[in-house]
Each structure stands twice: as structure tokens, then as C-alpha cells.
Write a protein that binds this DNA or RNA. Structure first.
Length: 583
RNA sequence: GCACCCGUAGUUCAAUUGGAUAGAAUGUCAGAUUCCGGUUCUGAUGGUUGGGGGUUCGAAUCCCUUCGGGUGCACCA
């Protein structure tokens, strides 16, 4: 039994014995004792004063006395105002350590047989990934790992936006100005090559607008009538009509782009179980519109367009099918939801998408609920804020985006530079050193982007992001490395297991023992220096641990670095996200 | 105009989801270290939680109001 429930049971018993009051265990809340007081667990008595018919302080004292006399797990207690602080006896902790050591994969929950599908990344095939995608990818990847550690069977999917007018724009510009350039001939990654022509299109487009305006046309009109735009629109129609030439070019360019994306994902350490392509899903959902009409969820207007009325839920009426029978964005998403459910039979489905689509997903989920989809309750939109630069918003057209590949490379270079300055790679061969730089550089970037509450905007400071001092991943990684070396020293002293460390205390300094107690609880496999320095995963462990083994928190204050490490874990990703998805 | 999100030390972010004296990092200042105006260490400084009401034993957190910032209100995706 874990310590929390043991204490809660004892408290419930104490209530009955001292105040003759029934208090269910589920109603009892415990929290961590603040550093400045003695104890590990704190019971807040204010809410129960009514039950005990004493003032909060008196209530705490009486309960404390009872626990001390009747419960062996309680070593001492103190009452400050309405806070009953409980100190547990050493045997409780020793038993706990033994239990931890006997538990393989401690901290990873056993499989629950529940499936979750996490969809993220969602790139467009007309340009390379940028900083915003990095936040998306890291969030999606992290939440996947958190859910995995919580016993879910996790699948990761990527819905690629590979069709539409914006794709045709880069294709058209390539046709006009490409001269048969290829990734090989240009030494450019495929996604960067496509992006180059997307930018080119925009430049030409602007030029043509200017010319038209100079010729006396209204600006609004010129935007719609620029020849290059009309040509792109014509190209989209050809694409939809399956024109062989257009399709061939589309396949060729997208192929280049996918090669480029794969390289980027490889650097990030992310892979997907399933790719969905909008070119294959954009016509889905029309049958659902029929179904909705039959069920009376949707209604038809005089012009033949189909709508859903969500005013009873505080939303508006929303179009789901145009009068000409073609579908819109939400139609496609309804169809894709069914498709994904058919493929995965998930219990939960998470969409990692920016907060500008909050309303869209509210509507989508609501519609699916009205349609009676069994999976509708398991849908969750993991919404996140934009990434801002000190200079303002990122705009691809104005060239103010931070390219994902460039940024990652810069992080690796900085890691290499720092490490070599410190002379830490002596005796490393090249591949080992490279791997070290990857862990350091990418860890720093992940941490930087994940430490902020997902729903808040991030202000991306380039200088600060490559900083390795202060509240950064490398600093925490360093702390872990230090802990490991103390453990090694314990081993050299002939202490084989952590349990022995705890019981053979005379070999080590008191501070070291406390430190080892702390870290023996963080299984080395989730270690910060592990393959994925993923703060989100660590945050989840730390959260679980914090709840059950509060004592470590007080011990942590021994070393300042330890404090930082724990703090880092706690804040790395707001646990709220994981919890919300759970519920 | 309507809807949603955000507002916390100079700055970037936390705060166990309603708990105790709101914490870290960074910056600034002072001291130590030293081939250095650099690095590293120690300490100090720093807050009316945007403002105003309310709810209760207790509010950064919940409610109302007001002011700032952002996003969405397409028969685009």
C-alpha cells in the first residue's frame, strides 16, 4: 500500500475514534509539507472543523495525538494554525525503498489495454518546418510518452496537408523558374527546395499585383486577377481532375519534401505509426452529412446548403456542406475522425493543434457527439499558443520565420562548442561525441519549448535558447551526471544496491546518503542523460513521486542543483494537460 | 461588435489546481576567486499577482466589472 492511502486510512480512523465522525478516504486530501516545517505530509484541517466541532488548530492537535499513539508509521507531528504536519518513521521509508527496488520499471504504469491516438505535426508540403512546428512536435511527442508511461497503448499519427492551392503555388513557380532543379543538383533539402519556390511565387504574385495597380486596377481586384494566381487556380482544377502531368509533378515534388521532413523528424527523434494525407481524405465526410440529415442533426437551407445548429451550446450555425454539394474543412474532419476510429479503435484521440483552431474543434467534437459517435467523449484538442520572436510575430512571407532545421543545427553546434571548451569529451570517439552533442543540444531546445504552459504564448529569445546556464536542460543533465558519479562511488565502496546504501550509512557522508535516497527513486532509465531528454516524461514521474513520496522534496533542498532538477521536472510540462486528457 | 485565451519581481517563467511568509532562472548591486572589465562561487536586492468589487476560515487561482495584449468570428484549409 502506498503511503498516501495508508495515512488517509489512519486519518479516517482517527476521525471516527476522536470525533465519532465518518469521513471517507476519498474526501481526505494530503499535501506536501512546506520546506520550512518538519514533516512530509500535511493535512489541512480547516474544512473539517465543522465535523470535529473544534477549532482547526485543536482538531489538528487531537488528530495528531491519536495518530502518534496508535499508528506506528507516524514518528512525530506538529500543528501550525490549521495545518497538521506529519513526520513518518524511518521504517516506512526503508520499506518503500525496498519496494521500489523490487519493482522493475518503477514509475511506468502497467498496460491498461486502453488505446490512444495522438495526432500532431501536420505539416504543409509547400514549405519546411519552422519553430512553431517544433513546439507542436515536441508537445505531441511528449504527451505520447506521458500517456505511454501511464499504461496507454499509444499510436502517433501525422495528417499531412499535401493538397490545395498553396501546394499548386510552389509547383507553378517551380515549373516557371525551376529549370529542372532537384535536391541533388541544388544541394538543398527537398522541403527547403519547395519552400524556395513558394517564396518565389509570392514575389512574382506581388510584382504582378503592382503592375496591375499601376495600370489603374483596384488593389482588391488586382489580388484576385493576377495571372499567376489564376494559373495556380487552374492548376488546382487540373489536379482535382487527375491531370497526368500535374499529378506527376505533384508526386515528384512531394516526394522531395517527404525526404526532407524525414530527415528533420529523424533529428528530433520522432517517428509516426501512421500517415494520413489530405489528398486521400479531403472528399470524406459527405456520407456523414447524409446521415446527419436523416438523424435530424443537420438541416438543409433553401439553396441546398447543409448546416448544423449549435446555438443551444452557445455556438453559431455552421455550414457542413456547400450548396453545390462540395465539402468544407469540417466535413473532411468529420470523415477523417471516423476513418481514424476505424483504423485504431481508440479510447482517446488527441489532436495537437494551435489555439487559433479552438473554435473549430469545439464545433467538430460537438457535432460528433450529436451524431452519437461512441468515441466522441474521448476526443481532446491539445491546444497551444504561438511562438513569438522578440521582433514580433513570425511571418513566412516576410522571411521572419525561424527554420526548424537551422535552429536544431545551431543547437548542436552550440552544444559542441560548449562541450569542447569545457574539455568534457576526452576519450570519446566521434560517434559518442556526436551523440552527446545531440542529447545536449536537442535537450536544451525541447526543454526551452516545453517548460512553458502549452496554452500560453512563448517568447522565443534566440540568445537565451542556446544558453546552457541557469534553468536549462544541460544544467539538469549535468546534475544527473553528477548524481550518477556519486552512485558509482558508492559502488566502489562496495555498496552494491541502493538498499544497502540506505542501511550501510557509515560509508558515506550524510549529504551523500540523502542524495542517494532521492535519486534511487528516479530509475536510471528515465534518467535525464537517457536517450530522450524529455522533460515532459520526467515531469510525469516527478509528479507521481511527489504525490506519493513527498519526503524527497524536503531532502532535495540539500543541494541547490537538486532543487533545480526537481523544479525542472515539475514545471517541464503542466501536468494539467495529462490529467485533463485522462479525464 | 460578439466569443475564447492570456496578464505574476526589471526580464523569461513557476506556484502541488482554493492552502501556510507567491518561488526559480536571469538581470542589477556587493563580496570571494584570478594573467583579465571574462568564467566560477557566496550573499543581497527585487511583488498592491494589470485595476476595482464579491464569494469564505483562506484567493494569483472561483464569480462580476474594468483596462491592456492575442486569437477566432469564410460556402479557405
Amino acid at each position: 500500500m502506498n503511503i498516501d492511502s495508508l495515512l488517509k486510512k489512519s486519518l479516517s480512523e482517527a476521525f471516527k475514534a476522536t470525533f465519532d465522525a465518518e469521513l471517507d478516504i476519498s474526501e481526505i486530501g494530503l499535501q506536501e509539507t512546506r520546506k520550512e516545517f518538519v514533516g512530509s505530509h500535511t493535512f489541512v484541517t480547516f474544512p473539517y472543523a465543522r465535523l470535529s466541532k473544534k477549532n482547526p488548530e485543536e482538531t489538528g492537535r487531537i488528530l495528531g495525538e491519536y495518530l502518534l499513539q496508535h499508528k506506528s508509521e507516524v514518528k512525530s507531528f506538529n500543528v501550525v494554525k490549521g495545518f497538521l504536519n506529519i513526520e513518518l518513521s524511518d521504517i516506512v521509508w526503508l520499506n518503500l525503498f525496498a519496494e521500489i527496488l523490487d519493482t522493475p520499471n518503477f514509475g511506468i504504469h502497467p498496460p491498461t489495454n486502453k488505446k490512444v491516438l495522438v495526432e500532431f505535426s501536420s505539416p504543409n508540403t509547400n514549405k519546411p518546418l519552422h519553430l512553431g512546428h517544433l513546439r507542436n512536435n515536441f508537445l505531441g511527442h511528449s504527451i505520447s510518452q506521458i500517456l505511454g508511461a501511464n499504461g496507454y497503448d499509444v499510436s502517433m499519427s501525422n495528417l499531412v496537408n499535401d493538397r490545395g492551392i498553396h501546394i499548386c503555388k510552389s509547383m507553378l513557380a517551380y515549373l516557371r523558374y525551376g529549370n529542372g532543379e532537384t535536391p541533388e543538383s541544388s544541394q538543398l533539402k527537398g522541403d527547403h527546395l519547395a519552400g524556395k519556390y513558394y517564396v518565389k511565387f509570392d514575389q512574382e504574385y506581388k510584382k504582378e499585383i503592382e503592375e496591375l495597380v499601376a495600370g489603374g486596377m483596384e488593389a482588391e481586384q488586382a489580388k484576385k486577377k493576377a495571372p499567376i494566381l489564376l494559373e495556380a487556380q487552374a492548376m488546382l482544377q487540373k489536379w482535382e481532375a487527375n491531370d497526368p502531368e500535374v499529378i506527376a509533378l505533384w508526386k515528384q515534388m512531394n516526394g522531395w519534401v517527404y525526404d526532407g521532413f524525414n530527415q528533420s523528424y529523424e533529428t528530433m527523434g520522432i517517428h509516426f505509426d501512421k500517415y494520413y494525407y489530405e489528398s486521400e481524405t479531403y472528399l470524406l465526410g459527405k456520407d456523414i452529412v447524409e446521415e446527419g440529415l436523416e438523424k435530424g442533426v443537420f438541416f438543409k437551407k433553401d439553396d441546398g446548403s447543409v448546416w448544423v445548429d449549435l446555438t443551444d451550446e452557445g455556438m453559431d450555425e455552421k455550414l457542413v456542406l456547400r450548396a453545390d454539394g462540395t465539402s468544407v474543412y469540417i466535413t473532411q474532419d468529420m470523415g477523417t475522425a471516423d476513418l481514424k476510429y476505424g483504423d485504431f479503435k481508440f479510447d482517446k484521440s488527441v489532436y495537437v493543434v494551435g489555439n487559433e483552431q479552438d473554435y473549430h474543434f469545439k464545433v467538430l467534437f460537438s457535432i460528433l457527439k450529436k451524431l452519437g459517435r461512441s468515441y466522441a467523449d474521448g476526443l481532446y484538442h491539445l491546444s497551444y499558443g504561438m511562438v513569438d520572436l522578440p521582433s514580433g510575430k513570425m511571418k513566412s512571407r516576410e522571411g521572419t520565420v525561424v527554420d526548424a532545421d537551422d535552429l536544431m543545427q545551431e543547437m548542436l553546434d552550440t552544444a559542441e562548442q560548449h562541450t569542447q571548451e569545457l574539455g568534457k569529451v576526452e576519450g570519446f570517439d566521434e560517434t559518442e561525441a556526436k551523440e552527446l552533442y545531440r542529447k545536449l543540444g536537442l535537450g536544451a531546445l525541447k526543454f526551452y519549448l516545453l517548460r512553458v504552459d502549452p496554452k500560453k504564448r512563448i517568447l522565443f529569445n534566440p540568445q537565451e535558447s542556446v544558453e546552457f546556464q541557469g534553468f536549462t536542460a544541460p544544467f539538469i543533465q549535468y546534475t544527473f551526471a553528477r548524481i550518477s558519479s556519486i552512485l558509482r562511488r558508492a559502488k566502489q565502496l562496495g555498496i552494491e544496491t541502493n538498499a544497502e546504501v540506505v542501511t550501510n550509512q557509515q560509508h558515506l557522508a550524510a549529504e551523500e546518503i540523502d542524495l542517494i535516497k532521492v535519486i534511487s527513486d528516479y530509475p536510471s532509465k528515465i534518467a535525464l542523460a537517457g536517450d530522450n531528454m524529455d522533460p515532459a516524461v520526467i515531469a510525469q514521474y516527478a509528479y507521481d513521486l511527489a504525490k506519493e513520496y513527498n519526503r524527497f522534496y524536503t531532502v532535495h533542498s540539500i543541494f541547490k542543483e537538486e532543487d533545480n532538477a526537481v523544479m525542472a521536472m515539475r514545471v517541464a510540462l503542466s501536468q494539467q494537460v495529462a490529467k485533463t486528457i485522462e479525464n
